[in-house]
Computed example of a mutant assay.
Amino acid sequence: MSGVRTGFVTQTHTGDVSWQEAMEEGSNLGFDFVELYMDGATERTKLDPEAVRSLAGTEGLDLLVHLPFVDVEIGSPRERIREASREEQKACIETAGEMAAEKAVLHASTHATPPEWTREDVEPHLLSAIRELDSFGEESGVEICVENLPGILFTVHDFDRIFAKTDAAMTFDTGHARVDGMNAEDMKSFLTDHGDRISHIHVNDARGPADEHVPTGSGTLDLETALSPVRNGWSGTVSVEVYSFDFDYLELSKRKLDDAL
């Protein structure tokens, strides 16, 4: 597992688990980092960057963040909405830098969809946003990692355009890739072919081609096959993404991930 660090995506946005509790439990479970979800109860204006940075240091954890996406429209065809959304993401990235986060997961997505808006209407705006935010992230000391999304721009099958038209890194989400038709062998091939552009991985397990986020190992994804390139010299970060407030399931997920790696 040389060169690979493991962590988890915090479920702090609902307020059921505080960011402090997430960090403390993450440290207790032996994770290398936490990926702090910057929305809802842990939206940027509700965070004290110095306090987050300090506790991460005390707990011996590295920090990543997941940028907000539900109500953010970086690819909107409407200029004012698009520009305001990009400025909000920049403010989040700036806050991430103040917290000493090293990576930020980005959904390059939009709710502007057919029949009102075509792919040709929105894709150039999304690619432009990726380039702009990637450049801003570099200035802030935060690596932007664009995540493949399930069934919408940008799916795993669209990333050839991101790789060709931007310099941004990728977050590879196993559950999202499965929704879009990939099996474990396909994931293995994708990670092998694009490992130089993939900086971060979300292990999102499911019982079928769905975006379920069940505890790692309780789904039907063949993790050992899918993640085999990670064991063969890849260097990056891997988060388990589990929709649960019970840290026992997170502990089990870490054991299953460690076994696969």
Rank of each mutant, 00 (worst) to 15 (best):
E79A: 11
R80V: 13
R80T: 12
R80Q: 05
E83D: 09
E83A: 08
R86M: 08
R86E: 10
R86C: 12
E87C: 07
E87N: 12
E88G: 10
K90E: 02
A91Y: 11
C92N: 13
C92Q: 11
I93T: 08
E94P: 06
T95W: 04
T95I: 10
A96Y: 03
A100P: 07
A100T: 09
A101T: 03
K103F: 12
K103T: 11
A104M: 09
A104D: 06
A108I: 09
T110F: 04
H111K: 08
A112Y: 05
A112V: 12
A112N: 02
T113A: 10
T113L: 12
P114G: 09
P114L: 15
W117L: 11
W117I: 04
T118Q: 10
R119F: 04
R119Q: 04
E120L: 03
E120F: 00
D121W: 09
D121Y: 04
V122T: 12
V122P: 09
V122F: 04
E123Q: 02
E123S: 02
P124W: 02
H125R: 07
H125E: 07
L126N: 11
L126H: 14
L126D: 07
S128Y: 13
D134W: 02
S135F: 10
F136V: 01
G137W: 03
G137A: 02
E138Q: 11
E139A: 06
E139Y: 00
E139G: 01
S140V: 05
S140C: 15
V142W: 01
E143I: 15
E143L: 08
I144V: 14
C145V: 10
V146W: 14
V146C: 14
E147H: 07
N148T: 01
P150A: 11
I152T: 11
I152E: 09
I152D: 03
T155Y: 00
T155E: 06
H157K: 13
H157D: 14
D158W: 07
F159T: 07
R161F: 01
R161G: 05
A164F: 05
K165E: 15
T166A: 10
T166Q: 09
D167I: 01
D167F: 01
A168K: 10
A168G: 11
A168Y: 07
M170V: 13
M170W: 13
M170R: 14
M170S: 14
T171L: 09
G175E: 05
H176N: 01
A177T: 04
A177G: 15
V179R: 11
V179D: 05
D180I: 10
D180M: 15
G181A: 12
G181T: 07
G181V: 14
M182R: 07
M182C: 09
A184T: 02
A184K: 06
M187V: 03
M187G: 04
K188A: 15
K188L: 14
S189A: 15
S189P: 00
F190S: 03
T192Y: 00
T192F: 00
D193Y: 10
D196M: 08
I198D: 06
S199R: 10
S199C: 12
I201K: 13
A206Q: 03
A210W: 13
D211T: 03
E212H: 13
E212L: 09
E212R: 06
V214A: 00
